[in-house]
Every structure is written in structure tokens, then in C-alpha cells.
Design a protein around this nucleic acid. Structure first.
Length: 647
RNA sequence: GCCGAUGUAGCUCAGGGGUAGAGCGUUUCCUUGGUAAGGAAGAGGUCAGGGGUUCAAAUCCCCUCAUUGGCUCCA
């Protein structure tokens, strides 16, 4: 056997090394600078320590801060460093898990009764940096299960013991750096000195192993960087993100509010917010009309039996707003948590023929769900919200084409609103747990295949999640992130075999026999509340022209031109251009500033010259003065701009 | 629901055991001004609510409510 191995680099070049060479050796042979930046290595597709010897011919990719795996290795090591610092500052704590995450890392700590001062996170950061400067090497050690158990028994850490319990003997490794040893699969960076900047971002409670029946540990979220400058940039980015927060902008632009008296999680739409909402609704209504939907309307409450039939009562009855009882008759009604049972009853209002299908019922239906108080969040998680709901009743053969049309509609909506950064999630059955689902296997197979095919044909950026399907059918959800990087589901489209069954929906087929239709639930926005929240964060309050609550601000130079301004306001209103006249006794500079701050798309400045010539001096938000136009000319210009945006 | 934090004027926030402050906004007056803040005066707060400690509580302690960072949940 040769004691040489061949290493193939990503560019295809091959190099020869002594057996047992490490990725760091390889990097060093290329350049010292590269070696300094290598955080981990991908050996034959597996991410490993860059300091682990390579024993055979391999494909090797050196991972640096520019690679996601490089970052996560750094953050994983940083979690160990934080644990070391915490053990030094708070002897006697017990450790849960400490993984890297999308932006940084966390460690779950049981402070075991030791008082933890969450106001002095800086002390932990400083301790981490102090330990980092020691450039302590990370070392990897394979350890027997018995020895691992003995180590943590001695240490008295039941969390690690529980983790070890789930591992196979022979697959257990410990990593050590400085005075800290942790049960860990790795990999890690070569030494702590790579960590140059750390910031503990927040402290939160987290149940051990995500189980709400088990002990709650203290989770410290943090992030680290190889350069101080990058930390600074990251923190600035977070600050910027906070400025986009829909709760902040919603207040500033007077879009919505909450009232303790009305109740938590129950948004109140202010006039400007209501205008925005109405424009979005009209936009979708128009698109749905074209796509063959019929609008229906259903009440805000429904008899309890309706939800017993739908199955929702059994599943959610206890965790919902409780039934409303009538005073004299013994009747019970539920605030509607969904629109579909009502729509099923509309479908049933007359016999259906296969020639009627697909039937598409749309409704901006307001629903009420009892969300846990700790879950409420601005407009993204509320207890009363309006779904842009629709239910398509079709034959099994029509599922795919209907699904494709729904996806087209969602994509149209997203593109009109400038949502580019979204992912699609195809949620299918858990193959290991087929009993969880109702409906015929062959129907599921067809529906799942249809959804996947549609996702592929529409070239969606999608992931498949097994086990995420609803019990009644597979679904396709559209996910977006808010300003702070939290993921939310917006649009959704779901195939349902359950409700047609439960409500005994039927149609007469061409064979003159009764058949059961398939239902597709779909909502391109998801909910108006959540969609608008994300829209606000996406555009930072600079709404597309057609949605802006105030599209124009008419700014008279002085009181003398108020008549002309008011006349102009009426003319614009007649041309479907909405805004207001700023009649305050302020100078033009002040009026412009205020309109700019409120992000009004166009400012029409009118003074002596304009009043005489029948013109307006136009200023565009963020652009400045764009010159003078005749009134009609501005209206045409305006409507052309709108047309560019929504078609 | 759970762990942590926060709650002072419409908004953003400072203050802090001896009975409340700024800026913006708002109102009135002066000013009639041409592309991002003209000037002056005034109004506005049971310091979230309740209880306790104290001669004295907005300030310290307890409870409740709301908001908030997470966790769990999400038809």
C-alpha cells in the first residue's frame, strides 16, 4: 500500500500528499493565507474538522467564512466557547444543547438555581473573547459510551446523559478546548482564536427537547464573527431591519392599532390601513373574477353542529373561543374559525352536475381563532383575521389543472407586489405513518404527484416536507421572511378529501351516477393581516403607487392657492387618484418634508404659476422635483405608472 | 400557556422615595412663504391597573393587565 494519497480539489486539480495529511496541510501547501482562513473541510461530501487526518484518496473542499458550512462550524465552536465562558462564570450550571443556527448559535443552559444576571451579558462576551485570545485548540476524541456516561455522571449533567442514551456506542465523540469538554459530533474550527467578535443577542426560555411538559432551560442566542467589523455591520443590519418592522411603520403611517379594551390580537384598521386593505382586496377580486371565481358571503358565526360535522370541533373545540349560547333557546354557535364548512353548505344548496365543475367560491372571510397569548405578534399572528379564502370543488381529474391555476394566481399576486424572496413548501404524507391520513391511497398519490408536477412545471423554488401534510390532504405553502428573518406562511393551497366526505358533497357524473368532488382550499395572501404585515416590511412602507393610502399630497404654496388646490383635489379624485390637500399654515418646505416622511408617492405643488396655467409642479417621493405638467398630463402619467406595476 | 424583559403626554424617550420633563405632534396668534423642519404662546400625564411597605411611592415589594424576545402551538 502506498503511503501517498491523492486529493482532488473542487476545480478538478489533483494533488498528492502523505497519508494522514489534514485539510489544513493541503491549504498550507496552496497558500498560507488560505490556511489561515480555513474553518472546516468537506471530505467526500462530509463536513469534518480541518485538522482531522485524511487517510485515503478524497475529494476535498476547503471551507471558509464564505461558505455556509464554514460559518456554521465557526458558530458551533462559538457555542462551545460560550459554554466554557458560562461554566467559568457560573460554576455548577448544566448544559443542554448548543447548535449553530441560520444566523449564529445558541446554548440551552440549566442555571440550576444559580442566579443569572441577564443584564450583564457583556461579562459573558468578554470572558468568551478572553478565552478566544488563548487560541485554545479544539481536539476530537472518540469515547466509549460507558466512559461518556461516567464523565457526565461525575459532572451531574442529566441532559447530556439523556443525549448519550440515544447514541450508539462507537459513534460518540467528545470535543475539548481549553478547560471545556462537550459531547459533540463536531466538526470544529482549529482553535478559538478564529473568533474575534461575539454578541449575545437575546435570552429566552426554551423547553428541553422542545417538549412543553419538560423543564424550561435558559437559551442564550448569540453570533460571532472572524472580524470585529463584520459584527458591527451585522448589528447595523439588525438595526435597519427593526426600522422596517410593520408594527413600527403601521403606527407611524397610521395604518392600524390595537386596544386593550377591544382585546389583544384583535387589530383595529385605521382609515389609511383600511384603504390599503380595500385596494388589495379589489386587486385580488378582479384577478379572481378573471380566473372564474364566484364571490360568496357567509356569516361570522356558525352552528356548533357545522363544526362537529367538519371535524374541527373534535380537533380544536377545547382550544377555541367557546361556543356562544343563545339566551332562551338552547342553541350554540361558534365564531367561525374557517370558511370552508360554510362554503360546503353553499355547494350543497342545490344538486350539482359534472358540467358545473369546477365550482370556485371565494370570500374575504373573517375568522377567529384562539391563539395562545404568548403567540400573538403584531399583525402576523392575531386572533381575528380575514382570509382571502376560496374553495374549489372539482373532480379528481381536475385537481392538477386547478392546482396549477391556483399557483399561477399566487405567482401573479406575488409578482405584482414585488415579492421575490419566497420559497414554496410541498407538504406530503409521512410515509412511515400512513394511518394518520384519511382518504384513498390512490387519490393521495394522484394529488401528491399533481402538486409536485405543478411545482416543477412552474419552476418554483420548493422543498418537499414529508409528514407535513394536513390529515385531510397534501398542500403547497408559500413562505416568506419578515424583516427580522422570521419565516411566515402566506399563500397556501391544499387538497382536501375529508370535508367532501364529511359533508357528503356530491355531483352527478356523465355516467349519471353520484360522485364525490375534491375540494381545494386556497388563499394567495393567506390572511390580509399577515400579508399586509409582510408587505409593509418588504417595502418599508413605500407602498406601490396603486396601494399607497395617500397617492398624492397637494401642497399649496400659500393660503392664496387653497381654492386651486381644492379644485385639483376634486379633479384628481374623479380620476381615481386619492390623496389630500395640506392646508396647514406652514411653509412649502415643511409640507414637502412631512409628505416625504409619510412616504407619499407624489407631491403636487401649486402656487401662483400653476394656478394661472392649470398645471401642477410634481415631486416624486425619494426622487425630488420632476417638473411641471398639465393636470390631465399628470393623471395620464400617474395611471401609466400604475399600469406598469400591475400588469 | 411557559421562561425573560418592558410599560412615564397622541408619538419617540429622559428622569427616579419628597408629589413630572424634552423633542415631535396638537391648539391659538404672527407670518403668505417655491421643493426635506419660519416664529411666539398655550393645552395635554392618577407615571398601565390594583394592593402593600413608608411620615411620604411614579420611584421599593407583590398581584393583575398589555406589549415584547424566545419556546410550545397554529384548522
Amino acid at each position: 500500500m502506498s503511503d501517498q494519497i491523492t486529493i482532488t480539489l473542487p476545480d478538478g486539480s489533483k494533488r498528492s500528499y502523505n497519508k494522514g495529511a489534514t485539510a489544513l496541510d493541503v491549504a498550507m501547501s496552496i497558500s498560507e493565507g488560505l490556511a489561515r482562513n480555513v474553518l472546516a473541510a468537506k471530505v467526500n461530501g462530509e463536513v469534518r474538522d480541518s485538522f482531522r487526518p485524511i487517510e485515503e484518496d478524497s475529494n476535498l473542499q476547503l471551507l471558509t467564512w464564505n461558505d455556509d458550512e464554514g460559518k456554521s462550524t465557526m458558530w458551533h465552536s462559538s457555542a462551545h466557547l460560550m459554554a466554557e465562558a458560562l461554566e467559568a462564570l457560573y460554576p455548577g450550571i448544566k448544559l443542554g444543547i448548543g447548535p449553530p443556527i441560520e444566523n449564529g448559535f445558541y446554548y440551552d443552559i440549566d442555571f440550576n438555581g444559580i442566579e443569572f444576571d441577564s443584564d450583564n451579558l457583556e461579562a459573558i462576551e468578554n470572558k468568551m473573547l478572553e478565552l478566544a485570545r488563548e487560541k485554545n485548540e479544539f481536539t476530537r476524541k472518540e469515547i466509549s459510551k460507558a466512559d461518556a456516561i461516567a464523565y457526565y455522571k461525575e459532572k451531574g449533567d442529566e441532559y447530556k446523559l439523556e443525549l448519550i442514551d440515544g447514541l450508539d456506542d462507537g459513534s460518540i465523540t467528545f470535543y475539548n478546548q481549553g478547560n471545556f469538554t462537550d459531547l459533540c459530533r463536531g466538526p470544529h474550527i482549529p482553535h478559538t482564536g478564529y473568533i474575534k467578535a461575539v454578541k449575545i443577542l437575546n435570552v429566552a426560555g426554551a423547553y428541553w427537547r422542545g417538549d412543553e411538559n419538560r423543564k424550561q432551560l435558559t437559551r442564550l442566542y448569540a453570533i460571532s464573527f472572524p472580524k470585529q467589523k463584520e459584527l458591527k455591520e451585522h448589528l447595523e443590519l439588525l438595526e435597519q431591519a427593526k426600522l422596517r418592522d410593520h408594527r413600527k411603520i403601521g403606527k407611524e403611517l397610521e395604518l392600524f392599532t390595537f386596544s386593550e379594551k377591544v382585546g389583544k390580537g384583535l387589530p383595529l384598521w385605521l382609515p389609511k390601513g383600511a384603504v390599503l386593505r380595500e385596494r388589495l382586496e379589489n386587486f385580488l377580486k378582479k384577478a379572481q373574477l378573471k380566473a372564474g371565481y364566484d364571490q360568496v358571503v357567509s356569516p361570522h358565526i356558525g352552528g356548533k353542529e357545522l363544526y362537529v360535522t367538519s371535524g374541527h370541533y373534535a380537533k380544536y373545540g377545547e382550544d377555541s373561543f367557546q361556543p356562544i349560547h343563545t339566551p332562551s333557546e338552547d342553541e350554540e354557535f361558534l365564531l367561525k374559525p374557517m370558511n370552508c364548512p360554510h362554503h360546503c353548505e353553499i355547494y350543497k344548496s342545490k344538486p350539482r352536475s359534472y358540467k358545473d365543475l369546477p365550482v370556485r367560491y371565494a370570500e374575504f372571510g373573517t375568522v377567529y381563532r384562539y391563539e395562545q397569548s404568548g403567540e400573538l405578534h403584531g399583525l402576523t399572528r392575531v386572533r381575528g383575521f380575514t382570509q382571502d379564502d376560496a374553495h374549489i370543488f372539482c373532480s379528481q381529474d381536475q385537481v392538477k389543472s386547478e392546482f396549477a391555476k391556483v399557483v399561477d394566481l399566487v405567482l401573479y399576486v406575488f409578482s405584482a407586489l414585488g415579492f421575490e424572496d419566497f420559497t414554496a413548501q410541498v407538504s406530503l404524507r409521512d410515509p412511515n405513518n400512513p394511518d394518520k391520513y384519511i382518504g384513498k391511497d390512490e387519490d393521495w398519490e394522484k394529488a401528491e404527484a399533481a402538486i409536485k408536477e405543478v411545482a416543477e412545471e412552474k419552476e418554483l423554488n420548493f422543498v418537499i416536507e414529508y409528514g407535513e401534510a394536513a390529515f385531510y390532504g397534501p398542500k403547497l405553502d408559500f413562505m416568506v421572511k419578515d424583516a427580522l428573518g422570521r419565516k411566515w406562511q402566506l399563500g397556501t393551497s391544499q387538497v382536501d378529501y375529508s370535508l367532501p366526505e364529511r359533508f357528503e358533497l356530491e355531483y352527478i357524473g356523465s355516467d349519471n351516477k353520484k360522485h364525490r368532488p375534491v375540494m381545494i382550499h386556497r388563499a394567495p395572501f393567506g390572511s390580509m393581516e399577515r400579508f399586509i404585515a409582510i408587505l409593509i416590511e418588504n417595502c418599508a412602507g413605500d407602498f406601490p403607487l396603486w396601494l399607497a393610502p395617500d397617492q398624492i399630497a397637494i401642497l399649496p404654496i400659500s393660503e392664496k392657492y387653497h381654492d386651486y388646490a381644492k379644485e385639483l383635489f376634486v379633479e384628481m379624485q374623479e380620476k381615481d387618484i386619492r390623496g389630500f390637500v395640506d392646508e396647514r399654515d406652514e411653509k412649502i418646505g415643511k409640507k414637502i418634508r412631512d409628505a416625504e416622511v409619510k412616504k407619499t408617492p407624489f407631491m403636487l405643488i401649486v402656487g401662483e404659476k400653476e394656478a394661472e396655467e392649470g398645471t401642477v409642479s410634481v415631486r416624486q417621493h425619494g426622487q425630488g422635483d420632476i417638473g411641471s405638467m398639465k393636470k390631465d398630463e399628470f393623471a395620464r402619467f400617474f395611471h401609466n405608472k400604475v399600469a406598469e406595476l400591475i400588469n
